[in-house]
Nucleic acid binder design. Sequence first.
DNA 1: TAACATAATGAATCTAAGA
DNA 2: CTCTTAGATTCATTATGTT
Lengths: 368, 368
Amino acid sequence: MGLVPTQRPLPLDQVLVGDCIAAMNALPASSVDCVFADPPYNLQLGEAGLLRPDQSRVDAVDDDWDKFATFEAYDAFTRDWLAACRRVMKPNATLWVIGSYHNIFRVGSALQDLGYWILNDIVWRKANPMPNFRGKRFTNAHETLIWASRSAESKGYTFHYDALKGGNEDLQMRSDWFIPLCTGEERLKDVEGHKVHPTQKPEALLARSLMAATNPGDVVLDPFFGTGTTGAVAKRLGRRFIGIEREATYAKAAMERIAAVQPLSKAALMVAPTKRAEPRVPFLSVIEAGHIRPGEIVTDERRRFRATVRPDGQLDNGLVIGSIHKIGALVQGLPACNGWTFWHVERAGKPVVIDSYRAGLRQAMANG
Amino acid sequence: MGLVPTQRPLPLDQVLVGDCIAAMNALPASSVDCVFADPPYNLQLGEAGLLRPDQSRVDAVDDDWDKFATFEAYDAFTRDWLAACRRVMKPNATLWVIGSYHNIFRVGSALQDLGYWILNDIVWRKANPMPNFRGKRFTNAHETLIWASRSAESKGYTFHYDALKGGNEDLQMRSDWFIPLCTGEERLKDVEGHKVHPTQKPEALLARSLMAATNPGDVVLDPFFGTGTTGAVAKRLGRRFIGIEREATYAKAAMERIAAVQPLSKAALMVAPTKRAEPRVPFLSVIEAGHIRPGEIVTDERRRFRATVRPDGQLDNGLVIGSIHKIGALVQGLPACNGWTFWHVERAGKPVVIDSYRAGLRQAMANG
DNA sequence: TAACATAATGAATCTAAGA
DNA sequence: CTCTTAGATTCATTATGTT
């Protein structure tokens, strides 16, 4: 590198169409304040395709850009783009990467190998994830973001601790974020009503990341720009962006989308916390918290019906095993029952409704 | 199996004191049903620099070679113990590993490189995490578990889908678990009131993992046994354990702790039979038992489709003869159909699903 | 129009037994 | 080994259609 000749100006608020590594290598070193990257996940899906219980087909991400022959090939790709990012990052810049269990461990390792310094891993808890249709695994209800500084010596990175805390009911912002999927109006669709991009991210996710780790006027680079969520949020928040996208159709959709975005006033940037429905509390959590012991007997208030609490959070009435709701309905011969208000445990000789153990857990679960 | 030469019995419900890799290599291959591992991560950053695995300080944190060597040593260690685990795992065994952003990416990558197949990554959301005192990062409010099968071909792993669902408001259990930290009574303390082990995991975390992925009587191996949470929970849940721990003081504390654990009753641990596990009933048996007569008309619930019951247990829709499933799929134009839940017969003017005749026959088959 | 019912869909590593 | 068949399997939200 050596001498830096007449430096070209940064291509701000634009989308560069082409390979992200080449495009980044054409940018001057130490020139961006933040990177947000949503690289291919390398899903490795089977040939057969997946059917829902209603026999409709799941629209899987089977695009060519997500296919890598081996982990080695994926690792090489990952190292290359991460290294290119690191070169253009200012010394105190930070980088966000999002991924799932398919790829995030490769990405995290590569980050560390290249000298990045992990500040947090963040869990995006999806409000409405796709279920596991075959019942063979836990519902894959989250994705992971890694937030890293350029190196362990980058102590002066931006983090708006107080703003985040103020927007989080004066509690420190935790590493688990509860945010809905990108659907509805926000999801870009073509004239036929099909989604333009298979993996468009919600703006709320980008907004929280960029609010936390950048200042107004900062330059945010996105090497996998897609349909430009990063650009749209950057513009709205008064940040600048540089997008790089290989597919011209995505790039075009992104620029049209961003053109329609209105930047927010400073006052509007102080976002009110999102209202959430009360979180569901699994009955298993009441047992795990020690309020009710496995093997205990639950009864209705007048002790006409009884069942035994199992360690898995189900009830056993001697004939059938099922949820508090199912067994409650069964013993009464009703089609449905709210087990929380129906079942009681004995405490100091008196029946205590199990619903009384829910409130505390709800409060604790609501954070994040 | 063929001939099995004088095989040493497994050291069940014991703690082996020593190096976990040597201890595992002394166990017979394909002998455990599940592994739960809470490995050390010595990649800890000090406030002012990097520590080597032996806790000596790395002077020049910008020394790339030294940094690389540290990760490399950790990776080699990780590969070794994961490979040793894989050898002693039965073909359908699964493995759990827990870690934080310091080490989980190394572990996940090593897993994949060794041929394990990741089934889920699970987020343990802590109810009461340690706050971030300096306000420079998000509160680190979670840890990550990886759940993996021995290989992509291990399709027969244990997963108690229905039990988990029943304890979770009749909804699929998600990949984000909300569980309190290990504190209070549960936390092991020495005579001076200091915690015995720095990273004792909550029993609820182990209980959910082991209930999900093992059956009563299964053998659970924990190569980093510590103060024996895995053993305590395994005993309580009627599973067997093999613990391996390098520090004799931890091993001793673990055995004392486990000795005090009362196992739950067999009845409480009984696994309810799932639909998948129930014996198959030929539709012909329903006819033979007289529940449905040959020549009767079957319809879907809303009577849009119809077919005739043949004496051989097949259906005839006027054009094609085939199984209840095949004809069900055919009339709907779907690739597949569960004929048991699709077809109905008329009884007292109302449609009755033919599946309702299976339960009685199953009962009879079980008794006969 | 309002209320209600039905259909669609989201980064998915998603079956098991028997011939 | 492959091929065939039985039959088990979904949650939250948005979009669309019907009464």
